[in-house]
Amino acid sequence: MMHRADSLFARLLGVFLAAILLAHALAFAWFSHYGEHPPPAEQHAHGPGLPPPEAYGEDMPPMPPPEAPTHGLEIDGPLIVLGFQLLTLLAAAWYGARLLSRPIRRLAEAAEQLAEDLDSPPMAETGPRETRLAARAFNRMQQRIRGQVQQRTRMLAAVSHDLRTPLARLKLRLEQIPDQPLRERMDHDLGEMIAMFDATLRYLHEQRDSETPQRLDLQALVESMAEDAQEHDADVSVRGQCGPLMAQPLALRSCVGNLLGNALRYAGHAEIALCDSREAVEIRVIDHGPGIDKAQHEAVFEAFFRLEGSRNRSSGGVGLGLTIAREAARRQGGDITLEETPGGGLTAILRLPR
């Protein structure tokens, strides 16, 4: 019985029962105070406190009938009842809807925080029984997800660490192979394996990294990254302007850096265009290289996906750059899309909402 009385259904039922009883009590009080009280017959004929007509004689003109006493505006009784009931039930409906939507809103807010940060604080297990059960299940789910991600990260880190030693021994033994072309191919394959391990660990680390957003001068960040690339003889230019916005600095630097690195790797040059508006900021990384077929614009964001042709493993990379960039953008509420550059090439568009 205690569990049933503590449920959300019992609370809503109690609210509506209380509203109905209150509405009827108010209506009863109204009729008790403002109901009709017919005066005595003698008072109706002569008015209260007046002598009968015989006392005035025959020449005395008749007195006008007294006015009936009023109590303010005359309103029909049933309308008062319906008005009280309507107002009371409307108040009960508003409170019941608020009571019903509050735990759902809390659950939605907790789910949104979990999507942005896996280490977000757990939900408070308070309220009626259904709310406590939902919060307890949500907290268990969060703990399991966090444990699985941590276990996966530890496993891959251990595998990467344990494989480095035999890979290093293999690289040393390669020097003993007399066939130089074979030795170079094997050395290239080993180097690619090591690069894949490093990129995978970096990808997992950025997935787990939680960074507090802060007000960031995005234009200064982009210009400084372009200057760093120019110091290494890279052909990079910046045009346009944008104002500061709330963002995660390290994640945003990683995101723009991956887009810029892809453009320089495959096209040898890059142009960064800044476009600002009231709703969002766009960063366009434009190149005039070989480009990507439109049918594969979404596929290239998958982890370890590589294209055949000029944008493949022979150009460097392990297929995680765009994956890391898009996930960094989405953690900040933005996204990355690709489109063809007019005249040939590829344009990566990073859009961040204000």
Rank of each mutant, 00 (worst) to 15 (best):
L204R: 06
E184G: 03
D198P: 10
M186I: 14
M193L: 15
R183Y: 08
G191S: 07
E184I: 02
A199R: 02
A199Y: 03
P178K: 10
M193G: 11
S210G: 09
I194C: 04
M196Y: 01
D179L: 15
D209N: 10
Q180M: 03
Q207Y: 08
Q176E: 02
H205I: 00
M186Y: 04
L190R: 07
M193T: 12
H205V: 01
I177K: 02
R185H: 13
I194P: 06
D179Y: 15
D198S: 07
P181M: 11
R202C: 01
M186N: 00
G191N: 07
E175C: 01
A195W: 01
Q176N: 03
I194Y: 02
Q180D: 14
E206Q: 14
L190H: 00
D209F: 06
M196A: 03
F197M: 15
R183D: 09
P178D: 08
Y203E: 04
E184A: 12
L201R: 04
E184K: 12
H205W: 00
Y203W: 13
D187Y: 00
E206H: 10
E184P: 00
Q207C: 00
H188A: 11
R183T: 12
A195H: 07
E184W: 00
M193E: 05
E184N: 15
E192T: 09
R185N: 12
M193N: 09
Y203C: 13
D209A: 07
E184Y: 00
D179V: 10
G191L: 05
D179H: 14
S210M: 04
E206A: 04
L182N: 11
L204M: 03
L190D: 02
R208Q: 06
H188M: 12
L204K: 07
R208T: 06
I177T: 01
E175S: 05
H205G: 04
R208K: 09
D209I: 09
S210C: 14
